[in-house]
């Protein structure tokens, strides 16, 4: 397995390089270093000299990919792409365009992100699985139809609506929780209740439908029929037979997102004023801060690849027939 993991990690390097190249090209197609300087320097009294100095201080005065003024080594290394991208591979994110250390910001902001994402994830998965199993138990009944209609309705509603409705009723009308904000320590719990509930409820429609399909597929298999024929109770059939076997496809969609939980949720964090990595990314995009966007895209790619590797490993844990080679 170790050899497999090392091989997968090595495969990841060209992928990450490609992601970096793509992000870099896209960003610089939209934004030239001059434009980035203007955004950072503001509107009033911005001279051409100030723009040049801003670029020079941040290394944006160099050629993008190839430095023809340099010799063999500097040809590729003394460029914006190399200087801004190579360090990412050792997780040195550098400074944002406004001068803050990105690594320090990320390590500070990942905790609020996790504080929202982790409970939402765990509770959401649990609720969806339990709900899906009950729907499977009553398959082809009125309850099944009603549940599916409800799921489609829930699925069709925009995430923003859940947030606004939640804020309106729970915080504004009923005064049960703060409408937004964040405090450290145990105080954080008061601010997390509503985002977590909304995150869970908003995911029920899609999650339940998906898991129901997966469980139904299992429910029609021979071993389930055999179990029933042996007189095993429906609960035992569901939880001891269908659930473990249905977990394999569920793992595909679940394990892959676990590392990405660090990255937070753009929408939830933004609306609830939670200072996590989701709102950090969104702010950076709005402020056209390439250094942060580049770092977050890179980090997102790394975590996604990590998630895929974890998924493969988890297959071997839940299904002994699968072997990594």
């Amino acid at each position: 397995m170790l050899a497999y993991i090392i091989r997968r990690l090595l495969y990841a390097l060209p992928i990450l390089l490609g992601v970096n190249l793509l992000t870099f090209a896209l960003f610089f197609m939209v934004n030239t270093p001059d434009q980035m300087a203007r955004v950072q320097l503001g509107d009033k009294h911005v001279s051409a000299e100030a723009i040049e100095q801003w670029k020079a201080q941040r290394g944006y005065d160099k050629p993008l990919f190839i430095n023809t003024a340099e010799n063999s080594e500097g040809l590729l290394t003394d460029t914006i792409f190399f200087e801004k991208s190579a360090r990412l591979f050792v997780f040195d994110f550098g400074k944002s365009d406004e001068g803050r250390v990105i690594g320090a910001d990320i390590s500070e902001r990942m905790w609020p992100s996790l504080a929202v994402a982790l409970p939402t994830f765990i509770i959401g998965i649990s609720v969806n699985i339990v709900f899906a199993l009950f729907v499977v138990m009553f398959r082809a009944s009125v309850f099944d139809t009603a549940a599916m209609v409800l799921c489609v309705v829930l699925l069709s509603i925009s995430g923003v609506f859940y947030i606004l409705a939640g804020q309106y009723f729970f915080a504004k009308l009923w005064h049960l929780v703060p409408i937004s904000g964040y405090l450290g320590g145990t105080d954080a719990i008061r601010f997390l209740i509503l985002p977590v509930i909304i995150g869970v409820v908003a995911g029920i429609g899609g999650g339940t439908r998906l898991y129901r399909t997966l469980f139904l597929e299992e429910a029609n298999k021979d071993y389930v029929r055999t179990a029933r024929a042996k007189g095993v109770s429906e609960t035992a059939v569901l939880f001891r037979h269908i659930l473990p076997n249905g977990l394999i496809p569920i793992l595909t969609s679940v394990v892959v997102v676990i590392p990405s939980l660090f990255m937070g949720s753009l929408l939830i964090e933004s609306f609830f004023g939670i200072p996590g990595l989701g709102s950090y990314t969104l702010d950076a995009i709005q402020a056209q801060d390439f250094a942060i966007v580049r770092s977050m895209v890179f980090l997102g790619s790394v975590l996604y690849i990590l998630g895929l590797i974890l998924t493969d490993i988890s297959y071997t844990l839940v299904d002994p027939r699968v072997r990594l080679s």
């Binding site: 915080a171 005064h175 929780v177 703060p178």
Partner: peptide
């Protein structure tokens, strides 16, 4: 977790929706 969260939120004299410490 949810029960605990709700209880913690209620364990003070200040309004439940108060965003300040």
């Amino acid at each position: 977790w949810l029960a605990g969260a709700l209880l913690l939120a209620g364990c003070s004299d200040q309004a439940w929706n108060n965003p300040h410490p």
